[in-house]
């Protein structure tokens, strides 16, 4: 009896402890709003990237983001890789040639500039982090290579951030010379709203709205961060089917072997 009481006491203490924890959660969540959940073509175990969306997203990145945000881990040739935006080798050569790559040193020891080739990676807009900070009022624009995996909420967060700007901060909130964004932790973001309706000229008839730009560029960044996603899911499906088959066979084998044994 005494022991039962002690047990109950323990359970109560435990419950109170966990309850306190729950209160804490609510308190801590007041910071930024949770990102908007978007129904992405690539979510779920059979999700695939939408090639046209990735191509549009690349266009948005190139025209609206690339001036400040590099993508130093992605190579131009990746744009033609299977499971990606699906550009052709020829298109990739044209895209690459648009960029200027610093190469060298040449025979005289000087660095020189040449047009990009498919083997090159996206050049960073700033020579180093200090230059990036100096040109952007102290806030370094992050590299975009893995940004979709480097933010809690992933593409939902990126999309929400793009559409989460407010012209005027709510009453009583001072963001200084920064901008108010519903989804940015702390709400005061150094980046000016980067997307505007009609700001990027789509050629496939997709409505040219901030909402579409935000979705397309988020999808593109997901691909940039996880270029092997389609291969991963495809192989994963095969592996799991195989394992289920093997487990069934092993189950019957094991049962056969143990059939005469009491255990």
């Amino acid at each position: 009896m005494i022991k039962t009481l002690r047990l109950r006491a323990l359970a109560t203490v435990l419950g109170v402890a966990l309850g306190l924890g729950a209160v804490g959660v609510v308190h801590a969540a007041g910071e930024a709003e949770p990102p908007i959940a978007v129904d992405w073509s690539f979510s779920g175990p059979f999700g695939r990237f939408d090639r046209a969306q990735l191509q549009r997203g690349f266009q948005v990145y190139k025209e609206s983001c690339a001036a400040c945000h590099g993508m130093e881990l992605v190579a131009f040739r990746n744009l033609a890789d299977p499971g990606g935006p699906g550009f052709t080798e020829e298109q990739v050569k044209v895209i690459a040639a648009d960029y200027t790559i610093e190469d060298g040193p040449d025979d005289l020891g000087d660095m020189f500039e040449r047009p990009g080739e498919p083997k090159d990676r996206f050049p960073s807009p700033f020579p180093n982090e200090n230059a990036a900070a100096a040109a952007n009022g102290g806030a370094v624009p992050p590299d975009f290579s893995v940004i979709a995996k480097a933010r809690a909420g992933g593409t939902d967060y990126i999309y929400s951030l793009m559409v989460g700007y407010e012209d005027e901060p709510p009453a009583g909130v001072d963001v200084g010379d920064k901008y108010y964004n519903h989804y940015f932790p702390g709400h005061a973001i150094a980046m000016a709203p980067p997307l505007f309706d009609e700001g990027v000229e789509y050629t496939d008839g997709t409505p040219m709205t901030v909402d579409n730009y935000a979705k397309d560029v988020s999808a593109f960044l997901m691909w940039a961060a996880e270029p092997k996603m389609e291969e991963r899911k495809r192989i994963g499906f095969q592996v799991i089917i195989y394992l289920i088959l093997l487990s069934a066979l092993l189950y019957f084998t094991k049962r056969k072997i143990w059939s005469a044994i009491d255990h």
Binding site: P45, K149, A150, R151, A152, G154, R232, K233, I235, G236, F237, V239, I240, L243, I244, L246, S247, L250, Y251, T253, K254, I257, W258
Partner: peptide, 29 residues
């Protein structure tokens, strides 16, 4: 054989993480 059966069940869980949620146990930072 019993271990092998249990191991393959464990591998299904393992594969589910590797192929469908490879970053869920890690930290975005």
């Amino acid at each position: 054989m019993k271990d092998a059966f249990a191991l393959v069940l464990f591998m299904i869980l393992f594969a589910a993480f590797v192929f469908y949620a490879p970053n869920i146990l890690g930290h975005t930072d």
